[in-house]
């Protein structure tokens, strides 16, 4: 077993935990970007299908998007909306970190139950991609700021990409590119949306959006 691949996978899991425990959005954005780069580099480290021209193009596109373009867009949105810290997530940081550990165990169990083709590298890839996917979902559910939810979305995409690159190899090229395009548009649109929300409401806390209802004239004093 290639130990660099293993180390890389461990780094990806640690990024999940870091994402769950960090309260600074700036750090969260970088963590997701670095995770994207690490996942992009994975096939190169493992030495699979790195020879085909097409897969190299797909790799470099995905690394460029996730490592440079997305963080740039999000950091710009962050600057425009003038936010620095995430508010305490639902349930607090220790609980969400503990949930992350439990989700990791669940994904280990899940991947031992599923029947799939042998991954192109390291057996750990499948549980880790599930764990990344679930962690992204957990972040979408438990965080209250729109920008962190976008990060959760990106993290889910990271998980899917890792799964695809491990099990499908180069064949998934077209699908991956299509997904990347979707994500790109989503992040782009969310960047603008976050800016508008924050200009309109002075904050981007989605918790308050649940209270939207028909406008009722306030009581006359």
């Amino acid at each position: 077993m290639n130990s660099w691949v293993d180390l890389n996978i461990i780094a990806i899991v640690l990024m999940n935990f870091m994402m769950l425990s960090s309260s600074r959005i700036r750090i969260c954005i970088r963590v997701v970007a670095i995770q994207g780069i690490l996942i992009g580099l994975m096939p190169l480290l493992a030495g699979v299908h790195s020879t085909t021209y097409a897969s190299l193009v797909s790799l470099s596109i995905s690394i460029a998007l996730k490592g440079i373009v997305f963080p740039y867009l999000l950091l710009r949105a962050l600057q425009k909306a003038d936010i620095r810290k995430e508010v305490e997530p639902i349930g607090g940081y220790p609980l969400s970190l503990l949930m992350g550990v439990i989700l990791f165990l669940v994904s280990c169990w899940l991947s031992s139950r599923l029947i799939y083709a042998k991954p192109l590298f390291s057996n750990l890839v499948v549980p880790v991609s599930f764990a990344t996917f679930f962690t992204g979902a957990l972040i979408i559910v438990s965080r209250t700021k729109a920008i962190t939810q976008v990060l959760g979305y990106l993290m889910m995409e990271n998980g899917i990409y890792l799964f695809g690159s491990a099990l499908l190899g180069g064949q998934s090229l077209l699908v991956e590119l299509a997904i990347l395009l979707d994500i790109f548009v989503a992040v782009f649109v969310m960047g603008i949306a976050i800016f508008h929300i924050s200009r309109e409401f002075d904050h981007i806390d989605t918790q308050n959006l649940t209270e939207l209802k028909d406008w009722v004239p306030s009581k006359q004093e």
Binding site: M1, L14, N123
Partner: peptide, 21 residues
């Protein structure tokens, strides 16, 4: 507790690694 749960997470991760290989 956050720091300690990080330690817990690291050890859980180490244990799962050894279980699978």
């Amino acid at each position: 507790p956050n720091l300690l749960i990080v330690a817990l997470a690291l050890s859980v991760l180490a244990l799962t690694l050894t279980m699978r290989i």
